[in-house]
């Protein structure tokens, strides 16, 4: 697209591949807000953006790196975290940010998530949780609420969902937070905090998917936002086992974990670079 001379530029334009706009997301989708929160945080965090790379798997949220004007890698379904792990170890100077969806990171990629967290790999993982597989047309995910309707649970989901912050905490993540796209200030601050710290940081972002999830569960985008407003309770430092994501009772938001623990690289450098003769 050619720009008119007097056209105003958006303050985030330098971080957006404007030649790729319009994007693919549906009207009312929450991903765009999570995307802009991420870009604002990247700018304000002061990290070296030239040394920052974004990695994603497959899905609607996984298209974010492709719209970001940084080195970006759109990989295979579920495999963003091991790809990012290789990048970080291949060049430890890189800031590696994984931006993907709940289906990608927690169903097909669930095993990689828990091991990345266990290792305390020094990467930031941002997960847009829209409760279903959006790109393929709204199928049940590992995060879909019980009894919700999706194309593959037409009578209601018989399975319970994951509590993602609890899973992240139990796996060893050293920073764990949950926000919604309505809480953009807190979300941005949280992403900024995660980018500035070392270790495996995980941020869950609740976002509406009107096309895949909303229309089968009588939830229009505004209903989701109203719900985020009315039902969310911010409880920083709450134990991840006590937080809830229950569309009747409420949603707990906040930064639940922020602890220091040596990263994989810290320990590797200290132990594995010894002369092997000394270890035998």
């Amino acid at each position: 697209m050619t720009k008119r001379k007097n056209q105003l530029t958006h303050p985030l334009d330098s971080l957006v591949r404007t030649d790729r706009i319009p994007h693919i997301w549906c009207p009312g989708c929450g991903i765009g807000t999570a995307f802009s929160a991420c870009l604002i945080a990247m700018k304000s965090s002061g990290i070296d953006l030239q040394k920052t790379t974004m990695v994603s798997g497959i899905g609607c949220s996984a298209r974010v790196p492709g719209y970001t004007n940084l080195d970006s890698y759109h990989t295979t379904h579920g495999r963003a975290i091991p790809f990012a792990t290789g990048m970080k170890l291949g060049n430890p100077e890189l800031n590696v940010v994984v931006f993907s969806g709940d289906g990608d990171l927690f169903a097909i990629g669930g095993n990689h998530f828990i091991h990345g967290a266990r290792r305390n790999m020094d990467i930031t993982v941002i997960c847009v949780n829209n409760l279903n597989y959006g790109m393929t047309g709204g199928q049940v995910a590992a995060t879909t609420p019980s009894m919700s309707k999706t194309t593959t649970t037409p009578m209601g989901n018989p399975e319970p969902p994951f509590n993602l912050p609890l899973l992240a905490f139990a796996s060893g993540a050293t920073y764990v937070a949950r926000w919604t796209i309505l809480h953009t200030r807190e979300l941005t601050k949280s992403i900024e905090e995660a980018l500035q710290r070392r270790g495996f940081s995980f941020i869950e972002v609740l976002a509406p998917c009107p096309t895949g999830y909303g229309r089968r569960n009588r939830e229009r985008p505004l209903d989701s936002l109203r719900f985020y407003q009315e039902k969310s309770i911010v409880k920083n430092d709450a134990h991840p086992a006590d937080i809830i994501l229950d569309y009747q009772k409420g949603i707990t938001l906040g930064t639940f974990v922020n602890v220091d623990r040596p990263t994989f690289t810290d320990i590797y450098e200290k132990t594995c670079r010894l002369d092997p003769a000394a270890c035998m």
């Binding site: 790379t53 990695v55 890698y73 990989t75 295979t76 495999r79 975290i81 091991p82 790809f83 990012a84 792990t85 290789g86 990048m87 970080k88 170890l89 291949g90 060049n91 890189l94 095993n111 990689h112 091991h115």
Partner: peptide, 18 residues
């Protein structure tokens, strides 16, 4: 890594990092 899928993914990531 945690499995061969991850092993191969990490190899590609490292190569892309140089």
């Amino acid at each position: 890594m945690e499995d061969e899928i991850a092993a191969m993914a990490s190899v590609l990531g490292a190569s892309c990092a140089g």
